[in-house]
Write a protein that binds this DNA or RNA. Sequence first.
DNA 1: AAGACGGGGTC
DNA 2: GACCCAGTCTT
Length: 347
Amino acid sequence: MSNFAERIIVWQQQHGRHNLPWQDAGAYGIWLSEIMLQQTQVSTVIPYYLRFMATFPDIGSLANASEERVLALWSGLGYYARGRNLHRAAKIIADQYQGVFPRLYEQILELPGIGRSTAAAICALAYFERRAILDGNVKRVLSRYCGFSGWSGEYLNLLWLQAEALLPNHDIACYTQALMDMGATLCKRSKPACSACPVQQSCHAFLTGRIAELPTPRPRKSIPVKDCHFLLLLHGDDILLEKRPEMGIWGGLWCMPQFDDMQALESWCAGLDMGSHLDKHGKSCFKQYPSFIHTFTHFKWDITPVIRLVNRKPKPTQKTEHIWMNILDAEKSAIPTPVRKLLQHLN
DNA sequence: AAGACGGGGTC
DNA sequence: GACCCAGTCTT
């Protein structure tokens, strides 16, 4: 038994977080929380988690829901493939496991959206199995504690080995939560509270003065800015939305028709039965609004909203699905954050 | 092995 | 504005 584990288990009992809504929620709640917590912080997740559990209190109700309703509850969280995978996994559990969350690590790992770390977290927290996790928090804690630098695959392999070597033989759920809570509240990326750390005395980075440089930040590439135009086609209180393809940005979500430039937007409109784009004064019916920037992981979008009021509702005949929706209803639908902002602006 | 995939928080 | 965060999936 490592001294490391003993110390952080004691720390967890005294200083860890014990009131998170998914603690003692069973495998389903722990699974849901772990998926939401991928790349997303606790304070952001909590309201989403509570709403989700209130709407889908068990795996069966989640499996029976439409993907539409699941994504609507996920709207604003980002990484929407997580929501789609969660829904797919719920259907698999309903079909293959009678709606009961599987008990074995190998079965859990097979489910869509669950990788090595999440499967281990569920097994440790829900089933008290002795398994190592390695998420962003644990990577930071162990990189510092062990003094590992780098970002390569070999570095990750070493961290996994250490994560397994340091596991205790008891209190595995407490230990797992301790690693996450320490990373979130003590061993932060900047200005970590080393003076309050239970393993300061044996932390390699602390003892060698390398806290600030570990873990090694991965080299960032400069991200490109792309222009695009959103068409806000309005008929009274109704707006035309289209369903985005499953793969790619905002997969499966509803969004205004999007174009690379004004010319593509106008020629698309020309194919629809909405009359001339010139009014009786010979001026364009398209009204451009100030653009705004939306940042993704790997590029930025400079979005120009273009409003066009129409007297009738043209029906696009593309392969992609379109729908005319009341603006207030649209705000409750499966839409990404910039679309939500635009809709709220219309009110 | 590297790139794709969101959004909010922090400094 | 740059950087970070309870990763997984695709290519």
